[in-house]
Design a protein around this nucleic acid. Structure first.
Length: 835
DNA sequence: AGCACGCCGACT
DNA sequence: GTCGGCGTGCTC
């Protein structure tokens, strides 16, 4: 066959690409691959395309093929951004699975998966046309807007609207475009910017011992220049090793204000003795390669490692149930090392809060620069660097939060999900409403790797699977070394109130321990899972309560900020001096949060150094770490905090942990309340260390010390809690016996919302039966951001029901409601495996 | 999600 | 009568 026919044949082939666009639409979009790009383009690469009339956005190639779409003309791909796939085949598979499982769109998955630094979206910009010469054609308003546009380089629609104080300027802009007064263009920005460092080095002809020596002599007459050379040589000893010159010296060394003037350096540059150059550097401080740190495992740890490995031979998932202080971390490190040694990648997931702490420092010491960190407080540029670092093979091991499951691994051998019971692994808003633990199990499976779940208080689901043999179960129930379990004291607040021994929130027992600790320089942690000063303010005369305008909740009083805040929509308002309803001045606070604890504590112990740690004090990037460090170095006596203080922190000098309001947690109206309360109380208690041979003390203030759950916490009886709970779950058809899907119907009108929810529920009940569909009923907070909510909870038995088919059915019914012409603007949120 | 197109109230 | 408000629907 001649090459002539072969090339003729090739000419006829036109390639098309199915693209995932980061927009919430259900389908993929087919674009045409321009000639010349077809040999370069790969599945998983990013491309730039025009989407809609003017928008330009980044998309990811999902599939390449040669079938032209029949119903429409495909547009051309504008640009190919990556020569090598930025998204791996495993990732694409995972994303598809997620969209399918969580009933959301692929674009939504892509949207959370890609750091925004890897996404490009265009914005329409308006610019003055310099050739415009018909101002007589314009209306008054057009003249006004044109003047604004003329004043600036380029403006977006929103910016113009803001400047001229109008809501909608598209019409006028359109008219201006028609009259050729302005030009429209699309501004595309690549958001990721590599970090560049300016450096200086000796010009190559001076980079030898002889040349340097000669130069020293030659510069005798110019002491400043000589000094610059000397400083250079002190950092970069070219005389000893000329090769060092290549890497040069950070230019900033000379910009410090110490008498070495920039002009002398400039002279040397002009003379051609020095030269400047730029290098792209990592945003992460370069660490030395990992030293060979030997982690010595105790016997129980070795046993755990062996058991885990044995289970991994036949099971995909192993649950490591290890109590606080049992030394799980060493077990993890050992397994990570082994996985890395065998050439596979490792992902270690941690809840947000636990990540910034000591554990990362420890892992860094062992794994050095092979380890990447992925944290939500990282800047976008930093995230992009971790992403690219994995693709380039710089990181084989990543420690990260929930969203780290989206990173571009290509050969994961092991995923560790630490604190697997943590609710922060579940993303609630926006879609995809995924559970990182479950996604991790799926991802490991796709890679042919294994998942290790770890917790001191496993989720009921995981423990159930472990006991049933679906997962392997390894337990470490002894504290490491001689560390004893903390001693518990249940303080009866009812009794103390009767005896008038309570000082507001503080029982006399807690007060005694606090003052003892202060006198003896021991530290205390106080836990109250509620931020702000008080959850309500109320008028004593007429019982008026400050509520949010947009939501059906009371406003929380924040004393420091001197304002009332809604914790649901973020609305803020001033604190009224008098009751808006009756004018009384007797407006008082009800209930208490961390701020009030802190405040009262300072009154009782003016000399104590107290710090509060909650969402409000840790907003800044390093605030969290700073508080931890101050507490660690004992610059703080008492740390007051929300659940933020309950995770993974280890402080040697904390001898007392105080817990307020345990009852509120236990009695929370939710089927998981007992499990959650047990987990939280146990986790917080774990912060109490032993000191000078004495076990730590955990003081729990409660109105009912005899309640079973508290007894189980005190006796560290996880199994007892599990057995009791699992029986109830089975009886009432809750997870792990069923899977839950929650549908939340939203509408600005109460009645419409109710009507839509009822309609939807009726359709579901008709097919699935009354017993599987609960509701619709308004949730605890019925109105959020001016939308009225109704929940429908669907319970699907694990064994009996075809989950896939049921979900398809639910999706259909939801679509019916959304497209119902009699119900406009209805929103329905689908939450699969809601928690 | 954007963004255009299309139909109703308050102004010249 | 127009202008600007926002509801509805599409994007390869």
């Amino acid at each position: 066959m001649s090459s002539y026919t072969a090339s003729l044949f090739e000419e006829e082939v036109t390639y098309f690409a199915d693209l995932i666009l980061p927009v919430p639409v259900p389908n993929l979009f087919t674009y045409r691959v321009p000639r010349g790009m077809d040999e370069l383009i790969k599945v998983g690469a990013r491309v730039i395309v025009q989407f809609g009339k003017n928008r330009v956005i980044t998309a990811v190639v999902s599939r390449l093929h040669t079938q032209p779409p029949v119903k429409y003309q495909a547009k051309y791909i504008l640009e190919l951004l990556d020569e090598e796939p930025l998204v791996t085949a495993h990732q694409l598979e995972l994303f598809r699975w997620m969209a399918d499982y969580y009933l959301c769109h692929l674009g939504e998955v892509l949207n959370v998966a890609l750091p925004s630094g890897l996404k490009i979206t265009s914005q329409s910009k308006v610019q003055y046309n310099p050739d415009f010469d018909h101002p007589d054609l314009l209306t008054e308003q057009e003249v006004m807007i044109l003047e604004e546009i003329q004043k600036h380089q380029a403006l977006s629609y929103e910016e113009i609207a803001r400047l001229v104080e109008q809501t909608n300027v598209t019409g006028i802009i359109k008219s201006l475009v028609g009259k050729r007064a302005v030009i429209l263009f699309e501004e595309v920005r690549e958001k990721y910017k590599p970090k560049i460092v300016r450096k200086v080095r000796l010009a190559s002809e001076y980079a030898s011992r002889e040349a340097v020596n000669a130069l020293m002599v030659a510069l005798e007459k110019y002491p400043k220049q000589q000094e610059i050379l000397l400083r250079y040589l002190s950092y970069v000893p070219v005389q000893n090793n000329p090769d060092l010159n290549q890497n040069g010296l950070d230019k900033s060394v000379y910009s410090q204000d110490d008498g070495l003037s920039d002009s002398s350096l400039q002279t040397l540059l002009k003379k051609g003795i020095f030269e400047t150059f730029e290098v792209v550097v990592s945003r992460f401080a370069d660490l030395p390669a990992a030293p060979a740190v030997e982690i010595k495992l105790t016997e129980s740890q070795q046993l755990a490692v062996r058991q885990i490995q044995t289970y991994f031979q036949e099971k995909e998932v192993v649950l490591l149930h290890g109590i606080t202080g049992s030394g799980k971390t060493e077990v993890y490190i050992n397994l990570i090392q082994q996985a890395l040694d065998s050439g596979t990648q490792v992902l270690y997931l941690l809840p947000e809060i636990a990540l910034t702490t000591q554990i990362v420092v420890r892992l860094r010491k062992v794994f050095g620069d092979r380890m990447g960190i992925y944290h939500s407080k990282f800047s976008d540029n930093e995230r992009v660097e971790v992403w690219k670092g994995i693709i380039e093979g710089k990181y084989q091991f990543v420690v990260g939060v929930r969203s780290a499951v989206f990173l571009p691994f290509d050969s994961l051998g092991l995923i560790i999900v630490d604190e697997e019971h943590e609710t922060s692994y579940k993303q609630y808003d926006p879609a995809p409403r995924y559970h990182a633990r479950d996604v991790a199990v799926m991802m490991a499976y796709l890679h042919g790797g294994k998942t290790l779940l770890g917790s001191a208080t496993p989720s009921l689901e995981s423990y159930y699977h472990a006991r049933n043999g679906r997962y392997g179960l390894v337990e470490m129930l002894q504290r490491f070394g001689e560390a004893a379990l903390p001693e518990f004291l249940l303080i009866d607040t009812k009794l103390e109130k009767k005896q008038r021994k309570m000082k507001n929130e503080f029982s006399s027992v807690l007060m005694e321990y606090l003052s003892y600790n202060l006198q003896n320089s021991e530290q205390t942690i106080l836990f109250q899972n509620r931020r702000g000063y008080s959850p309500y303010i109320q008028c004593e005369e007429c019982s008026w309560i400050a509520g949010c305008n947009n939501c059906d909740v009371s406003l929380t009083y924040h004393m420091r900020a001197a304002e009332l805040r809604c914790h649901y929509c973020g609305h803020k308002e001033e604190v009224p001096r008098t009751c808006p309803a009756c004018g009384s001045t007797k407006v008082r606070t009800i209930g208490f949060g961390t701020e009030k604890i802190e405040d009262e504590l300072q009154l009782h112990f003016p000399q104590a150094r107290i710090q509060r740690m909650d969402l409000d004090t840790t907003r800044a990037k390093n605030a969290y770490q700073q508080i931890i460090q101050e507490f660690e170095t004992e610059q703080i006596d008492i740390l007051v905090g929300t659940q933020m203080i309950s995770k993974g922190l280890d402080f040697g000098n904390v001898s007392v942990v105080g817990i307020f309001d345990a009852d509120r947690m236990i009695n929370f109206p939710e089927f998981r309340a007992s499990e959650r309360a047990f987990q939280m109380l146990t986790q917080v208690s774990g912060r109490a260390g032993r000191r000078a041979g004495r076990p730590g003390k955990v003081l729990i203030q409660t109105a009912n010390p005899s309640q079973v759950l508290l007894q189980r916490v005190v006796q560290n009886d996880y199994l007892g809690m599990y057995e009791a709970e699992i029986t109830e779950r089975q009886q009432y058809n809750y997870p792990p016996f069923t899977r839950l899907i929650k549908l939340t119907v939203k509408h600005t009108d109460d009645e419409t919302s109710r009507r839509a929810a009822t309609q939807l529920a009726d359709k579901l009940i008709a097919e699935m039966g009354r017993s599987r569909v609960l509701g619709p009923e308004p949730p605890l907070v019925e109105r959020v951001r001016n939308q009225f909510l109704f929940d429908i909870l669907i319970k699907l038995e694990r064994e009996k029901i075809n989950f896939k088919a049921a979900k398809t059915f639910i999706q259909e019914k939801v679509t019916d409601i959304l497209t119902d012409k009699t119900l406009k603007n209805i929103q329905v949120v689908i939450d699969v495996d809601c928690t």
